[in-house]
């Protein structure tokens, strides 16, 4: 009797193990094959993303308390300067607002929706990649806000990266400094085209620029608009070093990014598929 019970228990364990193993195989094969978040990934990101957002809230609160305390030093003079700046900005904003309204009206009239700049969505970084080899971040905007895979992420300083995957409330962004990132760019003064790739150490590398091209330290690098991800003319960085090796056809060009990736807290997602005219 005892032997039979033991055998039945063993069969149960094997069956359970087999089912779990099969589920694991299905999960891994479907995930690796499609390279997209499946339902379990999305649920996990939703749950853990909320915890990340809460942790970031707490750390942001303590950081802001400290920053506010430090900012009290010389706040009066800064306040006066900022008020003057604000008045100037308000005047400029009114002019720009009018210009944008006119632009939209005329563009609608001309039925040129595509030529209008797409709207942007502000997102807060709630999680950073802890690994040594990859550079990704998690932001608190997801498919529910209209974010889709491949949308570009920028700051006012320049490009940050592109959306890799989304869940309803959160998204994963591949930073431009990741070695898997490749962006089609132009060297602004000479209009020479190249590809900027991440170097993983918060630096960038400009590739496929021929040796006979004139590239100088300090040259600005901007997006070319080719490749269909980033709009044309966004700042990428500045040439920090250009070396012509004896071997090979191309120059070795290092680029200092326009964005400080270490201090990144917020970013803008360009909603490429929605036009302002809509």
């Amino acid at each position: 009797m005892r032997k039979k019970n033991k055998r039945a228990r063993l069969i149960k364990i094997f069956l359970l193990g087999g089912v779990l193993f099969a589920l694991f195989l299905i999960l891994v094969v479907s995930t690796v094959g499609r390279q997209e978040f499946n339902a379990s990934h999305k649920i996990s990101l939703e749950l853990i993303g909320r915890a990340q957002a809460a942790t970031t809230d707490v750390t942001d609160y303590f950081k802001s308390v400290w920053t506010d305390y430090v900012a009290l030093w010389g706040v009066r003079e800064e306040n006066k300067r900022l008020r003057e700046e604000l008045a100037n900005c308000r005047a400029a904003r009114n002019e720009y607002r009018e210009a944008v309204a006119t632009n939209i009206r005329l563009t609608k009239l001309l039925a040129l929706k595509e030529s209008l700049p797409p709207p942007v969505l502000t997102a807060r970084i709630v999680g950073k990649d802890p690994s040594l080899w990859f550079k990704t971040v998690i932001v608190d905007r997801g498919s529910a806000d209209g974010v889709k895979k491949g949308m570009p992420a920028v700051t006012v300083e320049g490009i940050v990266g592109q959306v890799l995957d989304t869940s309803p409330q959160f998204s994963k962004i591949l930073l431009a400094t990741d070695p898997n990132s490749a962006i089609d760019v132009l060297i602004q003064p000479s209009r020479i085209q190249g590809i900027v790739k991440g170097r993983n150490d918060d630096g960038l590398e400009l590739q496929y620029v021929l040796k006979n091209c004139d590239v100088r330290k300090g040259d600005q690098i901007i997006t070319s608009g080719l490749g269909g991800v980033f709009p044309k003319g966004l700042p990428v960085g500045t040439v920090s070093k250009a070396v012509r090796d004896r071997r090979g056809m191309f120059q070795k060009i290092e680029v200092a990014p326009a964005v400080d990736f270490n201090g990144l807290e917020h970013l803008l997602i360009i909603m490429k598929e929605n036009s302002l005219a809509e």
């Binding site: 193990g17 694991f24 891994v28 690796v32 990934h41 802890p130 990859f134 890799l164 898997n180």
Partner: peptide, 28 residues
């Protein structure tokens, strides 16, 4: 063994969400 295996697998799947562009790398 089964406890450790389950944990290693689940942590791998979770880590995939937050690190790197390749899904399936960490579980393996």
């Amino acid at each position: 063994t089964y406890q450790g295996a389950v944990l290693a697998l689940i942590f791998g799947l979770l880590f995939d969400i937050f690190s790197g562009p390749y899904l399936g790398l960490y579980p393996v």
